[in-house]
Design a protein around this nucleic acid. Structure first.
Lengths: 128, 128
DNA sequence: ATAGACCTTCCAGTTACAGTAAGGTCAAAG
DNA sequence: CTTTGACCTTACTGTAACTGGAAGGTCTAT
């Protein structure tokens, strides 16, 4: 299967799939004309990657997860450890964003937002 | 004032300040020896930038906010519009992360995390 | 034969810096 | 007077994970 159709199947743009090949995540076969040729196994792997990326795992995480996925003797504890760490990172990010949101929401709410120059948002920013 | 002390004052690493000069956000004076020389006005501007960045505004947003800050005839509505858009982006990001968190938390919770290979996390990933 | 939809590789750009190298400057100590 | 160490300078590279574009080859249908 050519790259465009493969991309449609797994939900990734061709560009991204080529990138994944560049960095060694997948290695599709090549047809005689030089076109990439994706087998079911490749598609399966790409689907795995797409899903992991959509859950916010980094490429490096994905590399580790792929290795575990392919290791029939893996310990589920290893997988869980990666997921837990990622979960903690996500929660930290959420907390940071929620702080920002609270402050911003206050500021937006307190600003008249009309033609006059007086602006609590600007004032807050300049006070540091 | 030299760059290191300026950085300490406003809470930004020297590298970041040089970068901000590179992209035209600040233009400190230069002493005879070529060292950057920061006035109170520069420090004030940098403080403004540091605060805006800490609220998650992009560099481009900061550029616009700075212009409004320095425009005594600004309309507060213009400031508010930028803040509102940013607020919406943050809220969207939070929502996305919360989705991830929910899914991941479920998976982590459902995985025994021991030495056995059976792993609901891997299974979820491979199903897409 | 040709049009258009694919495919290929390679290079540049994105965000907001951080790291490092090579070298100039300054203040204090020996 | 020199040396040391802390500071400063510019310039180049690398980061994450792609995206866009150029130049050119291939395939299919008309």
């Amino acid at each position: 299967m050519n790259i465009k159709d493969a991309g449609k199947r797994v939900g990734l743009p061709p560009k991204t799939i080529r990138y994944y090949e560049d960095i060694g995540l997948v290695t599709p076969d090549r047809a005689n004309n030089g076109y990439r040729d994706f087998s079911d196994a490749h598609l399966h792997k790409l689907t795995f990657l797409a899903r992991a990326r959509s859950l916010g795992f980094s490429i490096d995480d994905c590399r580790d997860l792929l290795a575990l996925w392919e290791d029939q003797d893996r310990a589920s504890g290893d997988v869980r450890a990666i997921a837990k760490e990622h979960l903690a990172a996500i929660e930290a990010k959420i907390a940071g964003l929620q702080d920002m949101r609270a402050t911003l929401a206050d500021l937006v709410q307190s600003c008249a937002g009309d033609a006059r120059p007086d602006c609590p948002i600007i004032e807050n920013l300049q006070r540091g």
